[in-house]
Every structure is written in structure tokens, then in C-alpha cells.
Nucleic acid binder design. Sequence first.
DNA 1: GGTACTTTTTACATCGTTGGAACAACGTTG
DNA 2: CAACGTTGTTCCAACGATGTAAAAAGTACC
Lengths: 333, 333
Amino acid sequence: MTVTLKDVATLAGVSVKTVSNVVNGYAFVKPENRRRVEEALAATGYRPNVGARNLRRGRTGFLALMVPELSIPYFGELAGLVITAAQKRGWSVLIEQTQGTRSRERETLFSLGPHLVDGALVHPEALEAADFPSPGEIPLVMLGEHAVDVPIDHVAIDNVLAAQTAVSHLASLGRTRIAAIGRNPARGTSSQRLAGYREALSSAGLSYSDTLVAPAEKWHRSVGAAAMRSLLASDSPPDAVFCFNDLLAIGALRAVAELGLRVPEDVAIVGFDNNEESAFSLPALTTIAPDKTALAEAAIDLVHRRITGDKALPPQDIQTPFALEIRESTKGR
Amino acid sequence: MTVTLKDVATLAGVSVKTVSNVVNGYAFVKPENRRRVEEALAATGYRPNVGARNLRRGRTGFLALMVPELSIPYFGELAGLVITAAQKRGWSVLIEQTQGTRSRERETLFSLGPHLVDGALVHPEALEAADFPSPGEIPLVMLGEHAVDVPIDHVAIDNVLAAQTAVSHLASLGRTRIAAIGRNPARGTSSQRLAGYREALSSAGLSYSDTLVAPAEKWHRSVGAAAMRSLLASDSPPDAVFCFNDLLAIGALRAVAELGLRVPEDVAIVGFDNNEESAFSLPALTTIAPDKTALAEAAIDLVHRRITGDKALPPQDIQTPFALEIRESTKGR
DNA sequence: GGTACTTTTTACATCGTTGGAACAACGTTG
DNA sequence: CAACGTTGTTCCAACGATGTAAAAAGTACC
């Protein structure tokens, strides 16, 4: 059924290797033979067996991308960009979901054998240092925050600075009771954004209060809504909130609306990630907009360099740009 | 560097095949040898070369999933569910994006050689009958609407009925000027939803008018907003709108709000897809909620049956369930 | 025509794995 | 103890492709 090099060779009346040479663009093939082989290729509809080729070449042509969940807009958008960037370099992308649990993350990381993929882009959520495979297995690039210090390539925006930028923006509007939603000690990203939040408060001359920082196990919309409700129920509710991602912020918007308060008049809200939906929420969400395209391309670039040579390169730590996208949730219409 | 069966065999002092037998759970291996092999496996950290194994077995362990764009929430959510369902059956999923263009769709479909993946799930947007590969290449399952009639497995909800349900709901609220957003003659889905819209109008005793049907090339939020603005600018604006997907509806919500009108009092809105974000929009969106999990599982099931035998099975056409999710955009708070 | 060189083609081994058959060891049975 | 079935192990070929090196064909020059 399937056509192999041998079939083509028989049809063209040459050896298997000559066909292989034509397929791979080897220069020294007699024009006459090349023509016959090409005809035979066309006639049979030959397509190389990728598995066999890779077995021989020691490459697979696949990259893995590990993310918590594709249904989370940030990861859906990022995955799309990664796939596009990988495709330009001739790679196909295999996606693994971990639900953000440490056990699934470890499992996934471990299962990424050197034969399955040429390299992997991982966006860990709960991994710890000990979980990382011995270096030298396959090229690994980490996306987003590392909770821990491992000598592995890493691409992300400056989370502390970004959080600081967001909160400074709120302070610059004259808000004095600025809350935060999203604390989660188990996640590196959370710690970094919290640090930026505290830095911004202090440089604005505002004092930090634990009661203004709401925890959030999962950074989902419903959690943001619940957190916002509890913040608003306190004795001295906030007049602004920095949410650690857009989903929390979208939830917060709803909680505010349900209590009959207005955004931004009563409470200003800033998110983080710039999900596509955030430009269309009512009111539209002010948010930190990471350059996701740059992120995806930097990551693919890095893994490409690792795979093609540069073994000795010390672990890179690349920061990609971000911007504060000011919209209605802090400035009104 | 990499550990092969041979290395393990040498260490354990048995033949390669015996190690292979242990790895593959062959029953008749002397306990003593089994123990030694297992120790050697653990000591070396052996991991099978998937490529070689597949070359031998004639399977790849990969499925392809072709979608327009992962950044579109519906596809992000669906892809996540497909990956989960595939994983249960031991498959990894390779994602290809087409941007919904016919040329990229053809290209992708063609490039899915029998060696690259065991089967493919495709969600075409613009493909025509002629574009489909000769049957018998690799198992192909189509998701969502087929614009054309090809003898290929197909899983989707009943789009006509779903659209009819949505519009009947609007009619049952007493709305009489029910518009639609999303007409696009090039897309099968659009035609089906339009058909359902017309059926519902007629069974409610309402007349169809072209001026109430807004076209939409891309079903994105901004397009929905623009379409809604133009509908509202007409002489006799609608009092309800059926949007062909949630993104259009989200855009429509914004357009209504910007004109100072209220949803649902002035205009009721129904969407389609039940994206996660639609439960949190302000107001929350009434929408058709397809059972995406059922869809993903039915598709994986089907491709699994095709791959493991059932070659003779005639092309299946499976309908998965949906529900009308009634929320604030048609019923108020 | 012989030599030296270049171009073109081929045979063969190989990548890591598994299926199948052959073989060896073993205990049972007649 | 020969014949036999049952277990357990090994050897060999094969999956489809490519790298290597050697063979074959062609060209140029003396």
C-alpha cells in the first residue's frame, strides 16, 4: 500500500540510493536519471517515512510544548504563537497539558524522551528544582516564571517590573487602598508579582497590608469574583485592585458590578496578560500586555540554537518586552 | 549517551530480545532474569526509542488535530479536551493551525502522511470536496460542519436545530425584530445556522428580512461589534440578535453598551459555543452550549475504531448533544 | 592506450526495535 | 531413557531511510 524508496527505485530502474539522493537534493545525479526518478516519484506519490528517516538521522522533527491547560486563554494564545514560530523552522509541535499539578508536570517532563522530541518548551506551574531532569537530556526551554533556580534556558518578561508598573499606574490615579488578588505561595509567578506590588506601594508612599492581598489557588474567573466579593465586604474596601492575571480581573469586574458599584469610579482594576477578551470586557480592562509573539519566538530561537550545536552555551535568561495597556477599567470611557 | 536495549542486555547478561520481552510484558521470562533485567533497566534509565519502535510496529503514536487558530477560545477549549481524550488512549496530539484559509488547510491535509500520524481530526473552515485526499490514506475524522459532502467520518452537533433553539428562545420572549450576525456564504457552519434561524422565524410567525442579517467574514469580537453598530443604526433596529458564535456576541454586547442601550431590555442577545468567558461577560451571555467533551471523545473514539480495524465501517455521522444555556443577556439578572 | 582524475551509481551496514523461528533447558510421561 | 510438551532464550530478519566507501563510468591528457 505505502510507497517506499524501493518501489520508486524499481519503477525508475535505478538503485534505492539514487532515489534517496534525488529526494535529498544530492548534486551528482545524471540529468537523465534525475528525470526518470522524478517521474517515478510523481507517478507513485512517494512520501518519505518520517519515522525511518528520523531513526537514521537521530532527529524527530517534533517539539513538545508543556502548558497547564489550553482552555486558559493565555496558554491558548501562546500555544498558537509557538506553533507558528516552530513551523517556520520546520518543527511540528506536540502539546502536553498538566493541569498545573506538580505530579503531571514531573511525569510529562520525564516522559519527554530524547527520541520523542528534539526539544521542549515548558511552562511549569508547580515544579521544584529536584524535578528537573539531569541536564543534557534534551534541550529544554522554560517559559514564564521559574519557581526555582535551575540552570536551564529561560524566557519571560520581567514580572516584578511589570507588576510594579501596573500598581504604580493605579497609584498615579490617586488610589490609596490598592488591593491585590492572586497570592499563592506555591507559585513563583505569584511571588514575583507580589514583590512588584509591594515595591510599587512603597515607592508611592503607601503602606502594605495583608488584608488587602487576597489569595487565589487557581487563577480563574470565578476565583477572582469570590476574592473581590470578600475584599469589598471588608470594613475598609479597596479603591483599586491589581489582579495577577486577566481572568481574575474579569471575575473581579463581575463581582463589582453585582454589588452595584462602578469600575473605575469606585474601584479601578488592572489585570495581567492582555488576553484578547480583555479588550472587550465591559469596561475594557487595563492590563499588562506581554509581547507574546516575542516570547514565543525567543523560545523557539533558543531551543533551535541548543539543538543545532551550541551545547556549550551557558543557560540563557532572556527577557522579552511588555507594555501597560491602559483601558477603561482605570480611566473610564 | 543514549541507552538502548543492547546496553541493558549487556548489563543484565541476557539477549536483547529478552530485555525487549520484559519491557513489553511478555509472560514467559524466568523470574531471576526478569529481576536482573529490571534492575538493569532502572540502573541505566532505559527509555525506548519511540521512532524505532514505531518503525517496526507501523504505528506512530501521534494524532494530528487541525484547527483554524488556538487563540480562538472555542478551539483552545476543544483542543484541550481532544488532547485529554487522546491521552487516555495513549496518543499524543500534534496541532496544526490553518488560519481558516483553504490553501493552508489543503496543505496541512496533504502533509499528514501515513507515517507522521496514525490519524487526524480536522476542523475545516474553507475546504472543498476536491481537497480531500483519496480515502484510505489515513483515518480522518471531521469535526464541526462540513461544507461539502465527502464520505468521511464526521462528528458535530445538529447546528440547524441548535440555531433554531436559540432563535425560538428569543421569539418566546416576545421579540419580533430578531437579527442575525455571522452570515458567510463560504462557510458551511454559517449556512446551517442561518437555516435554523430562518426555520425558527417562520415557526414563530415572523418574517425573514435580509436587512436583519449581518455578514461577518471572520467571527471575531471586533466584527461582531461593527455588525451590531450597523444593525442599530438602521431605521428599524432589532430588539434581539442571534450571533453565530460567542465572540460575535461579545462584540455585539459592547456595541450596544457604547450606544447607551441595555441588554436585554433594549436588545436581547444569544451566542453560540458557550466559551468560558461568556459566563462572565456583563451581562452574562445566553448561548448554545455544545457538549465539547462529548464531541472530543466521540471523535477520538471514532478515529480509534478506524485505526484498530474497522476499515469497512461506512462513514459515520455522529451528532453530539447541546443545550441552551440561558443567562442574563436574554433574561436579565 | 594507459594513467589520473572526476562524476555517478551501487552495495552494504546501520539506526533501535520487535516478530518469528529456531534452539535449549526442563520436567513429565509412557 | 526416549519421546514429548512446556518454558525460556537466542538468533536473524525486517521496518524505511541514509552514510560510507567502493565500484563503475566518463573525461582529459600525455
